[in-house]
Simulated scan of single mutants.
Amino acid sequence: MDYIKKFSEIDSNDLAEVGEKNAAIGEMFSHLRTKGVLIPNGFALTAAAYTYFVSCNHLETALAELMKKLDRKEYVNLSEIGKQARNLLMAGRMTNELGMSIIGAYDAMFEDGIQEVAVRSSATSAHLPEVSFAGLHESYLNIRGSYALLYAVKQCFASLYTDRAIKYREEHGIDHDKVFLSVGVQEMIRSDIGCSGIGFTPEPESAFPDVLHISGIWGLGVDAVQAKLNPDEFLVSKSALEQGSTAILQKNLGSKAQMMVYADESDEVNSTMCTTTP
Rank of each mutant, 00 (worst) to 15 (best):
V37Y: 14
L89Q: 03
S239E: 08
V225L: 11
L235S: 12
L98W: 04
L70T: 05
A47F: 02
E268Y: 13
V183L: 06
K68I: 15
C274Y: 04
K5V: 01
D232Y: 00
E60N: 14
L66F: 06
F180G: 05
V225Y: 05
Q186C: 14
F234Y: 15
P278H: 04
A240P: 01
A148V: 03
P278I: 01
A224E: 10
N77A: 09
K238L: 15
Y147L: 08
N22H: 09
P278Y: 02
L59A: 12
L38S: 08
N13F: 10
I4V: 04
V222F: 06
P202S: 00
T275Y: 09
Y3P: 01
T61S: 14
M1G: 09
S215A: 05
Y106V: 06
T124R: 00
L181T: 12
D223T: 02
V185G: 03
S146P: 11
L32N: 04
V117P: 05
P40H: 02
I174W: 10
M259H: 04
L136E: 06
E9C: 02
R33L: 15
A24Q: 15
F53P: 07
G184M: 12
I102K: 00
A148Y: 10
D232F: 01
V222S: 10
V211G: 00
S8R: 07
A44L: 03
L89A: 06
M90V: 11
F53H: 09
S159C: 11
K68G: 03
G184F: 13
L136M: 14
L181H: 11
D71K: 02
D177Q: 13
W218H: 07
L38H: 10
L220F: 15
K6V: 00
A49R: 06
S266W: 02
T46C: 02
S101G: 06
T276D: 04
E171V: 08
T272A: 04
M100C: 10
F7A: 07
E9N: 03
S55P: 00
L88Y: 15
G36V: 12
T272M: 08
Y52L: 13
S122A: 15
I81D: 01
A134R: 03
H137S: 09
T51F: 01
Q186R: 05
N41L: 03
E130F: 06
N87Q: 15
